[in-house]
Lab assay of single mutants.
Amino acid sequence: GATAVSEWTEYKTADGKTYYYNNRTDESTWEKPQELK
């Protein structure tokens, strides 16, 4: 099967917290998305 390329990108805020942003859905989350686990 084809490997899905994750749409999630990991970013850090100014105070060093990590969050994740999805370019396709324009969604952001503090929790690590399922695709990255």
Rank of each mutant, 00 (worst) to 15 (best):
W8D: 01
Y21P: 04
A2G: 12
G1H: 13
R24K: 13
N23R: 10
K17F: 06
Y19M: 09
T3K: 09
K12R: 13
T13P: 00
A14D: 09
Q34E: 15
G16H: 02
E10K: 04
Y11F: 12
T9V: 15
A14M: 09
N22I: 01
Y20C: 05
E7Y: 07
D15M: 05
W8R: 01
T3L: 10
T18N: 07
T18R: 05
S6G: 12
V5T: 14
P33I: 03
E27S: 05
R24P: 03
L36E: 08
T18M: 04
T25H: 01
W8T: 01
T25G: 01
T3C: 15
T9I: 12
L36S: 09
Q34I: 14
T18H: 06
W8Y: 01
T25D: 03
Y11N: 05
E31Y: 06
T29M: 09
G1R: 12
G1I: 12
A2V: 13
Y21R: 07
D15W: 05
W8Q: 01
Y20A: 00
V5I: 13
Y19H: 04
Y20N: 00
Y20L: 01
L36G: 10
R24N: 10
R24T: 14
E31Q: 09
L36Q: 06
N22R: 01
S6Y: 09
N22S: 02
T13D: 13
P33A: 02
N22Q: 01
D15I: 01
Y20M: 00
K12M: 10
T29L: 06
S28I: 15
E7S: 07
P33D: 02
Y20W: 15
E35F: 07
D15H: 03
K32S: 05
N23P: 12
E35K: 04
E27M: 05
L36N: 08
T29I: 10
K12A: 06
E10D: 00
G16Q: 00
E7D: 13
P33M: 02
W30S: 10
N23T: 14
Y11K: 14
D15V: 02
A4N: 10
K12L: 11
A4T: 12
P33L: 03
K32M: 11
Y21H: 11
R24C: 13
T25Y: 03
Y11A: 07
T13M: 05
P33G: 01
K37N: 13
K12P: 03
G16T: 00
T3I: 11
Q34A: 12
R24Y: 15
G16P: 00
E10P: 04
E7Q: 07
K17Q: 11
T9D: 06
K32Q: 08
E35G: 08
K17E: 09
K12Q: 11
E27F: 03
V5N: 12
T9F: 09
T25M: 02
Y21T: 04
T13S: 07
K12T: 14
A4Y: 06
K12D: 02
D15F: 04
E31I: 11
N23S: 15
P33K: 02
N22T: 00
S6T: 12
A4E: 15
T9P: 00
K32Y: 06
Y19W: 11
T25F: 03
S6W: 07
E10G: 00
E31T: 09
V5G: 11
S28L: 15
G16N: 04
K37R: 14
T25Q: 02
Y19Q: 04
E31R: 04
N23L: 09
Y19F: 09
E27P: 01
Y20G: 00
L36V: 08
A4K: 11
Y20V: 00
G1V: 14
A4M: 14
K17R: 13
S6N: 12
T3P: 14
T29V: 14
E10N: 00
P33E: 02
T29D: 03
V5R: 10
E27L: 05
Q34M: 11
K32E: 08
A4I: 14
S28D: 04
S28T: 15
T18W: 04
E35Y: 06
T9H: 12
S28V: 15
E7A: 07
E35I: 05
K17N: 08
R24S: 12
T18Q: 04
T29F: 08
E31M: 06
T3Y: 05
E7M: 05
N22V: 01
E27V: 06
T25P: 00
N22E: 03
Y19A: 04
E7F: 05
Q34G: 11
A14G: 08
W30L: 09
S6I: 08
D15E: 09
W30H: 08
T9K: 12
G1D: 13
E35R: 03
T18K: 08
G1F: 13
K17M: 08
Y19E: 05
T3R: 10
A14I: 12
E35M: 05
Y11W: 06
Y21G: 02
A14R: 07
G1T: 13
N22H: 02
R24G: 07
K32P: 09
R24I: 15
K32F: 05
S6H: 09
A14Y: 02
T9E: 10
K12V: 14
L36H: 09
G1K: 12
V5L: 12
E31F: 08
A14V: 11
E7I: 07
R24W: 14
T18V: 10
A2M: 14
L36C: 09
T29Y: 08
W8E: 01
T25N: 04
A4W: 07
Q34D: 15
T3E: 11
S6D: 09
Y11H: 14
N23M: 13
Y20H: 01
T18G: 03
Y11M: 15
E10F: 02
K17H: 09
Q34S: 13
D15G: 06
Y19D: 03
Y19T: 02
G16F: 00
E7V: 06
N23H: 15
E31G: 04
E10V: 07
T9G: 06
Y19N: 03
N22C: 05
V5S: 12
L36A: 09
E27Y: 03
T25W: 03
T3N: 14
T9N: 08
Y21M: 04
N22G: 00
T29H: 05
L36I: 09
T13L: 04
P33T: 03
T13Q: 05
W8S: 01
Y19K: 06
A2F: 11
K12W: 07
A2S: 14
K17G: 04
T3W: 07
T3M: 11
Y21V: 09
A4R: 10
G16A: 00
T25I: 03
T3Q: 14
D15A: 06
T13I: 00
T25K: 03
E7T: 05
L36P: 08
A2K: 10
E10W: 04
Y20T: 00
Y21A: 02
Y11L: 15
E10S: 03
T13G: 08
T9W: 06
K37G: 13
N23Y: 12
A2L: 14
E35V: 06
V5Q: 12
W8L: 01
Y11I: 14
D15S: 08
K37F: 13
P33N: 02
A2Q: 12
N23G: 07
T29E: 04
E27N: 03
Y20S: 00
S6F: 08
Y20Q: 00
S6E: 10
Y11G: 06
L36D: 09
W8F: 02
V5P: 14
G1N: 14
E35P: 04
A2Y: 10
E7G: 08
D15P: 00
P33S: 01
A2E: 13
A14S: 09
K32R: 10
K12I: 12
